[in-house]
């Protein structure tokens, strides 16, 4: 129980542990080791035991088991976590940039009047505080910042660290909330799953991805045509799905799908971190964007600074010609 310790908040939803948790454990291990502190990991769920093996890299695994934590609601989650923080007094609390993380990290930081950083790419201890590099402006700007006083909440950018492969022997401790938890004002009702029947973009080896740069609904057809000659499928960034030009099942990124095709052809996509999270594992990434400074060129293998709408018909032609 000291500010040298680091607490990782595991992200579990629908009985699945989010991959970002294992990345947080490697960031947390570095921070704990530098201060000779302990690495703790907390799981909020009905029964955290099934996750114990995956999270064994921590020194201590705190399982807050409660039926009110079966599905997410901010009230019980924040209350349960606040109690753990009060008991353990960690100096750094690491939270993933996930759907739950975006609620609970800022809510707790406000309650505890503690600083919060989003988009952390790197972090080190510095004196009694810490220094960090954060990404903002959709990946177009970085800031080196300093926090003098702990505790601090850090939301770590998914993919900025490798997942831990440490197999440890975390001591498992079961925690019982001191008072009954209740989802009072915000209550979970039901899961809404995507409608089946559409193409499963996670199973495609070739994806033609369109972003806001495609400009109009009619232009999606140009991408469809290219996908047909390539025997692939069309997917999209969020704005295209927001416009209703393609169904949500075609969205790649944080709230969409994570894809690993052999080819990802990104047309008019800027490469915001929330999008890159879902496609950076593709075998070959080719990006087409009119902005030479678009962050997508930092993840792509090949790039072309041209108008995607001009390229599309030319590419359909070139591909058809090479196939014969």
């Amino acid at each position: 129980m000291s500010s040298r310790d680091v607490l990782v908040v595991a992200d579990v939803q629908r009985d699945v542990l989010d991959d970002t948790t294992l990345e947080l454990l490697s960031v947390g291990r570095g921070l704990a080791a530098a201060a000779e502190g302990q690495l703790m990991c907390v799981v909020l769920s009905a029964d955290g035991q099934p996750f114990a093996e995956s999270l064994s890299a921590a020194d201590r695994l705190l399982l807050v088991n409660d039926v009110q934590l079966t599905v997410y609601s901010p009230g019980p989650y924040v209350t349960a976590l606040q109690e753990v923080i009060a008991a353990e007094q960690p100096g750094v609390i690491l939270v993933g940039g996930t759907s739950i993380g975006w609620d609970i990290a800022p809510l707790l930081a406000c309650r505890l009047q503690a600083p919060l950083l989003t988009g952390c790419l790197a972090v080190q201890r510095q004196g009694d505080g810490l220094s960090a590099s954060v990404s903002f402006c959709a990946g177009k700007m970085m800031a080196d910042v300093h926090i003098a006083k702990l505790p601090a909440f850090l939301m770590v950018m998914p993919g900025s660290s490798r997942a831990t492969d440490e197999v440890g022997r975390a001591r498992v401790e079961i925690r019982v909330p001191s008072a009954p938890l209740a989802a009072e004002q915000i209550r979970f009702q039901e899961w809404v799953l995507p409608e089946p029947g559409d193409v499963d973009i996670t199973q495609q080896s070739i994806l033609v991805a369109v972003g806001r740069g495609i400009q109009q609904e009619d232009n999606v057809e140009l991408a469809e045509e290219l996908a047909r000659v390539l025997h692939g499928a069309v997917c999209a960034s969020r704005p295209v799905v927001d416009q209703g030009w393609l169904p949500a099942t075609r969205q790649v990124g944080k709230s969409g799908m994570t894809v690993k095709p052999k080819l990802y052809l990104a047309l008019g996509i800027s490469g915001a971190p929330e999008h890159v999270e879902g496609m950076k594992g593709a075998g070959l990434i080719i990006a087409v964007n009119t902005d030479p400074n678009a962050p997508i060129f930092d993840v792509a293998h090949y790039g072309a600074e041209i108008d995607a709408l001009d390229l599309l018909p030319a590419l359909v032609e070139a591909v058809s010609a090479k196939k014969v």
Binding site: M142, A143, D144, H301, Y302
Partner: peptide, 23 residues
């Protein structure tokens, strides 16, 4: 409570090989 020491455009370790020319 967060002080900014320095801002800078991201420096990426990798960059796409750029394809030049007309479409």
């Amino acid at each position: 409570p967060v002080s900014v020491c320095r801002l800078y455009p991201p420096v990426s370790g990798t960059h796409a090989e750029m394809i030049a020319g007309s479409e």
